[in-house]
Computed example of a mutant assay.
Amino acid sequence: MPTHPLTSHDNELSPPLHHDFPFDPTHGYDLPRLLEVGAPAGPDDFVDFWQERYARALRVDPAPRLEGPWTTVDGLRVADVSYTSVDGVRIGGWLTVPADGRVLQGCVATHGYGGREAPDLRQPPPGTATIWPCLRGLGTRSLLPGVASNSAGHVLHGIGSRESYVIGGCVADVWGAAGALLRLVPEAAGRLTYLGTSFGGGIGALALPWDDRFHAAGLTVPTFGNHPLRVTLPCTGSGESVRTRLAEDPSVLDVLAYFDAATAARHLRIPVHVGAALFDPSVPPPGQFAIHNALAGPRELLVLRAGHFDHPDEPAETAALEEAQRRFLSEAD
């Protein structure tokens, strides 16, 4: 674990980011203060709740199925895929495998709250067999009747109960994706990894502590961290819907306590690379850093100038992050 965070930019030379948001996307936190943000301990039965959900999910036969012909793009074979998750929900996505057939590792790669229309073939390291699920209710492959596909509505679906909350189903979809990938590409079992950005980063932090099939992970600007703090911070992302709902129904915070990615990170012991932003209008930076700070195992942090925001350094920053995570996933012990 590095003794200090790596940065993708020079804080002293970078000018302030200009914006027209009615709030400060840094929320007044500089890097030293962000590195001190803690994680809630969570309910007494937090671990039992998630271990039981994981055991329940493993009893579901993923019954993976290729949904069309293979195509070859940039040295990878690509095919549509589907599998069954909890509650009988059929999840759609894509499977990519090295065209030369040499599989060095596997990966479950999830998406942000914008969903996914196609796999991002550059993300995983070379030699990776990757499943790219669209988690339940989200596009373009896993839309569900009655579940909003936009972040504002999706994040509130079933939030009245820890059993019905859609985020729990999305976490189970990750476990199902792992089972589907290992059924379709058994040689990926020796080194299974995870990649998740924003929504997918938070979902990964919730899913990975209970699943010993995973070897390492990369989480980028992860959400759902430190809900008690998060709901005090205005944003343009899904957290704003939660803030509004909480004002109407304070009991929502009791449910959210079971879905706090920072609390879950306290139990995550595999090596994890985190890309966390100093400035982010969509996912408040303190929540992102709360997840990183709480990780119980080896970790590496790449500090980003901004997340969910176009700025001149963004292309270089994204390239540096992707390269760092490819290296991390390939080298993590």
Rank of each mutant, 00 (worst) to 15 (best):
R90C: 11
T140I: 09
E317M: 15
A178K: 08
G115C: 01
V274Q: 07
E240T: 09
A332M: 00
A55V: 10
I291Q: 06
P209Q: 00
L304N: 00
G190I: 02
G202K: 00
Y165M: 02
W70L: 14
L143T: 09
D100T: 12
G204F: 10
C107I: 06
G237N: 01
L184W: 02
L182T: 10
G200C: 09
F23I: 01
G75Q: 02
A188R: 01
Y258M: 09
R141M: 14
C107V: 09
I91C: 01
L95P: 00
P43Y: 12
A189G: 10
T130K: 10
V185K: 04
E300A: 13
F279R: 00
D173L: 07
T244C: 05
A55C: 13
E322T: 11
S142M: 12
W94D: 03
A316R: 15
A290N: 09
V73H: 14
S238H: 13
P119R: 15
V78G: 03
H227Q: 12
S85K: 04
L301D: 06
H292T: 04
A79C: 15
T26W: 04
A277V: 00
A148L: 08
E163I: 02
V252L: 15
G176M: 13
F49R: 00
S164E: 15
R191F: 03
A109S: 14
V255E: 03
V97H: 06
L6K: 13
G275H: 05
L58G: 02
G179V: 02
P271V: 08
D260T: 07
A178R: 04
E117M: 14
R90W: 02
C134E: 13
A332L: 08
D24K: 08
P62Y: 10
G137E: 13
A178M: 09
